[in-house]
C-alpha cells in the first residue's frame, strides 16, 4: 500500500512538473509580436531610464552627451542635405514613360515611410521601401538602382523626410506567413554569425552606449527610424541595406545580397518593435 502510494505520488509529481514546464516551453516558441514589442521597449526604457522613448531614434547621439552636442551642431548644416535635395528632385522627375514615383505609392508617396516594410499578402513576403522603389522603376521601364547608396539613399532620404515625426506603424496581418516572416526576422536578429560570433543583439541590445573601438553603439530600438543615414565613416549616405551588409562583414560574415528574404524579414521585425517611435530619417551618424 505504502509502495503503491509512493509510486502514485511520484507519477503525480512528474505530471505536475511536466505541466508546469509546458507553458514555459510553449511561450518560448510562440509568436506574439505585441508582447515582443512591449518587452523590447521596456528593456530599453529600463536600461536608459532618463531617455524619452522618442529619443532612441537618435542612436548613439542619445547615449552620449558629448556626441549629442556635436550632433546638435551638425544638424545646423546636416551632411545629408545634398542627398535630400537630390532625392526630392529625382522623386518628381518623370520616368521616360512620363510617370513618376508618386504613381507607384499610396498618397503619392508622401508621408508614408512609417508604413514600410509591409507584408504583401499577394506575394506572401515582406516588401521594403527600397524594394518597392526599385520595383516601381522596373515597372516603368527603368533600370533598378543599387540598394546600398547614392540614388537609393537619396530617394529614401526624401521619402523619410516627408514622414518625419510620424510614428513607425508596421502592421502584421493575421496571416501565418506574415507571422513566420516576423519570426524569421527575429531569429536573424538574435543569431550569432561571422567569425567574431556576434549577433545584431550583441552590439545593439547588450551594449548600446558602449564603445566598440572608437564608435558608440546605437540601441536597436528605433535604429531604422533614422534611415537612410549619412555616415562619416562611409563618407557618404547609406541605406538600410548598406547597414545590414556592412554589419555582417564587420563581424567577418559574408553578407547576403541586399533585399534577400533574411534582410527583408529582419527589417520587418526591427521596424515592428520600434512601432510608435517617430521617423527621424534621414539621419547622420559618426
Amino acid at each position: 500500500m505504502t509502495r503503491r502510494f509512493a509510486i502514485r505520488a511520484a507519477i503525480a509529481t512528474l505530471a505536475l512538473g511536466v505541466l508546469a514546464l509546458a507553458p514555459a516551453a510553449y511561450a518560448a516558441d510562440s509568436v506574439d509580436p505585441a508582447a515582443d514589442k512591449a518587452a523590447f521597449q521596456k528593456f530599453f526604457t529600463g536600461k536608459f531610464p532618463k531617455l524619452k522613448l522618442e529619443d532612441f531614434v537618435n542612436g548613439p547621439y542619445s547615449m552620449n552627451e558629448d556626441l549629442h552636442k556635436q550632433w546638435e551642431e551638425k544638424e545646423q548644416f546636416p551632411p545629408y542635405e545634398f542627398s535630400l535635395e537630390a532625392g526630392k528632385e529625382m522623386f518628381s522627375t518623370p520616368f521616360k514613360n512620363g510617370k513618376t514615383y508618386a504613381d507607384c505609392f499610396p498618397n503619392q508617396g508622401i508621408g508614408i515611410r512609417q508604413n514600410y516594410p509591409y507584408f504583401d499578402e499577394k506575394e506572401g513576403k515582406v516588401v521594403t521601401l527600397e524594394l518597392a522603389l526599385n520595383r516601381c522603376r522596373e515597372a516603368n521601364g527603368e533600370a533598378p538602382f543599387s540598394y546600398v547608396k547614392d540614388d537609393m539613399a537619396a530617394l529614401t532620404a526624401y521619402m523619410a523626410f516627408t514622414s518625419r515625426g510620424k510614428p513607425m506603424d508596421i502592421k502584421i496581418p493575421n496571416d501565418p506567413r506574415a507571422l513566420e516572416a516576423y519570426q524569421k526576422g527575429k531569429e536573424y536578429f538574435y543569431t550569432r554569425r561571422g567569425q567574431l560570433n556576434f549577433s545584431c543583439a550583441t552590439c545593439h541590445i547588450q551594449s548600446p552606449g558602449e564603445r566598440i573601438r572608437a564608435e558608440v553603439l546605437a540601441p536597436a530600438l528605433g535604429i531604422l527610424n533614422a534611415m537612410p543615414i549619412y555616415r562619416s565613416e562611409w563618407s557618404g549616405m547609406g541605406t538600410t541595406s548598406r547597414r545590414f551588409t556592412t554589419c555582417n562583414s564587420q563581424i567577418r560574415g559574408v553578407p547576403l545580397n541586399p533585399q534577400d528574404d533574411e534582410y527583408r524579414d529582419l527589417e520587418y521585425y526591427l521596424s515592428y518593435v520600434s512601432n510608435g517611435l517617430p521617423i527621424s530619417g534621414p539621419g547622420a551618424r559618426p
Partner: peptide, 10 residues
C-alpha cells in the same frame, strides 16, 4: 544557433 539564439532574446 538554430536553438541557441533564443537564449539572447529580450
Amino acid at each position: 544557433e538554430k536553438e541557441r539564439w533564443k537564449d539572447m532574446e529580450v
